[in-house]
Design a protein around this nucleic acid. Structure first.
Length: 228
DNA sequence: TGATGATCATTA
DNA sequence: TAATGATCATCA
């Protein structure tokens, strides 16, 4: 664990100093071992970057760099240069969220400032050999924020009307709601119809890979068109 | 092959 | 228990 960076510039400089580094070298600097694979260590890369960049303790509902208001996200990048996976944002407030607007939402605060760190995620490359990419400090532009707001409001409608049973990950253009739980039997208090309390599977907001791909391409012009 | 739904480890 | 870090496993 390092001291947290004092400014955004310092954070960005630190992050970019890791560009090109293999995960095995990054792990060495952090004093941790590279796991054989990610199957039982799904968050390992993210936690490694948190350590190296001096992020605050994980698993708290606050930005990774609270004093900077910056959230750290690693992005798994496939052989074509596109994100392999969606990006978890935060839990969906299944109850007690009545009246919460986009402006007040935790989603908006989390995404207001994000440090994206691309990391190679090509299955053909052994985990230890995969390289860290060049970090990007990002805030949504007006168009991106409009898309996020619309999805947020559309998706939360299911929550507020107690119709979670009709909600699936197919809804939402750039952001979706999917299960986020240790297992399928997990239950949380949720709003039912008529405002009754019911139990439901915990869920989280996720950014679609197509959305994060667009962010990267807009800032790096690094995504090539598919060719025949 | 891509997206959805399910799941794993850790921490406060 | 409930949040964080995410990827896995399966099926259309």
């Amino acid at each position: 664990m390092r001291l947290p960076p004092n400014t955004e510039q310092e954070l960005l400089q630190r992050a970019r100093a890791f560009a090109g580094l293999r995960l095995q070298d990054a792990a060495l600097r952090a004093g941790v071992a590279v796991p054989p694979d990610l199957r039982r260590n799904k968050g390992w890369i993210g936690e490694l970057l948190e350590t190296l960049l001096g992020a605050s303790s994980a698993s708290l509902p606050q930005p990774d760099f609270p004093h900077l208001g910056v959230e750290l996200k690693t992005l798994p990048i496939d052989a074509r240069g596109r994100p392999r996976e969606s990006t978890y944002v935060c839990m969906v407030p299944l109850d007690g969220a009545l009246g919460e607007t986009w402006e007040q939402s935790w989603v908006r605060r989390k995404l207001a400032r994000v440090l994206w760190v691309p990391v190679q995620a090509d299955a053909a490359i052994p985990l230890a050999e995969r390289r860290i990419g060049s970090a990007l400090l990002w805030s949504p532009d007006a168009h991106e924020e409009a898309l996020l707001r619309r999805d947020y409001e559309d998706l939360m409608e299911f929550v507020h009307t107690g119709t979670l049973d009709r909600l699936s990950a197919r809804f939402g253009e750039v952001m979706q709601i999917r299960p986020k739980a240790p297992h399928g039997r997990a239950r949380r208090r949720a709003l039912g119809t008529d405002g009754a309390r019911v139990l439901a599977n915990p869920r989280g907001f996720y950014l679609r890979a197509s959305f994060t791909a667009a962010i990267l391409s807009a800032h790096y012009c690094a995504v090539r068109e598919e060719r025949d």
